[in-house]
């Protein structure tokens, strides 16, 4: 088989990032079956747009498609989550008082971290997953999430504060 054929290039550049695609879709939809549907749809789109991919980071390129597919999917199936439109002003970051948080963080087990992450607004969850689990650079996050590079750092700051608060709330509920 000709290794330069488009389908083979697609296999080599896009398919290796299946785990990353599923991870992002799973975190954005918060459901395994929905994530599988989204990933299949995203790969169809990726195949369609592959002619426009001119090298570079295949993972970030695919994740941008997965992210947009997720948003389309959520708009169609769970418009309530989307209409809960994200507002940077409303979700003003409040700095948590550090020392008790620090103590609480150490107690927080992984289940709590997962639940707290899932409870975050979509826009925060997305930048945290891209940064902490996928290890993308700010430039790549800006490309994938369709935001300005300058916004990435401030949104991460808010998202992390939000996550800390969420973890603290979870713990004080008990």
């Amino acid at each position: 088989m000709d290794t330069h054929s488009p389908s083979s290039a697609f296999d080599q550049v896009v398919l290796p990032h299946l785990d990353a695609a599923y991870n992002l879709a799973r975190w954005l939809t918060r459901n395994g079956n929905d994530a599988e549907d989204v990933v299949q749809e995203a790969f169809l789109r990726a195949l369609k747009f592959f002619g426009g991919f001119h090298g570079g980071n295949g993972r970030a390129w695919l994740l941008a498609i997965v992210r947009n597919t997720c948003y389309d999917w959520l708009r169609r199936h769970r418009p309530s989550e989307m209409s809960d439109s994200f507002d940077e002003e409303v979700h003003e970051a409040v700095d948590p008082s550090p020392s008790p948080e620090d103590r609480l963080m150490k107690q927080a087990d992984r289940l709590r971290v997962r639940e707290a992450l899932e409870a975050l607004p979509l826009a925060w969850r997305e930048v945290l997953i891209l940064r902490e689990l996928e290890g993308l650079s700010y430039k790549e996050i800006a490309d994938v999430a369709g935001i300005k590079m300058g916004t990435v750092m401030s949104r991460l700051a808010r998202a992390r504060s939000g996550l800390q608060q969420q973890l603290a709330v979870d713990l004080t509920k008990e």
């Binding site: 398919l15 299946l18 785990d19 991870n23 990933v39 299949q40 992984r110 971290v113 992450l117 902490e132």
Partner: peptide, 26 residues
Amino acid sequence: AQLALRSALKSDELYFRAPAGLERKV
């Protein structure tokens, strides 16, 4: 506190790997 948060996020268990069979479906 941020360092503690970061280490809590550095867990492989938070990463959802594609289930078996998804590659075939794709």
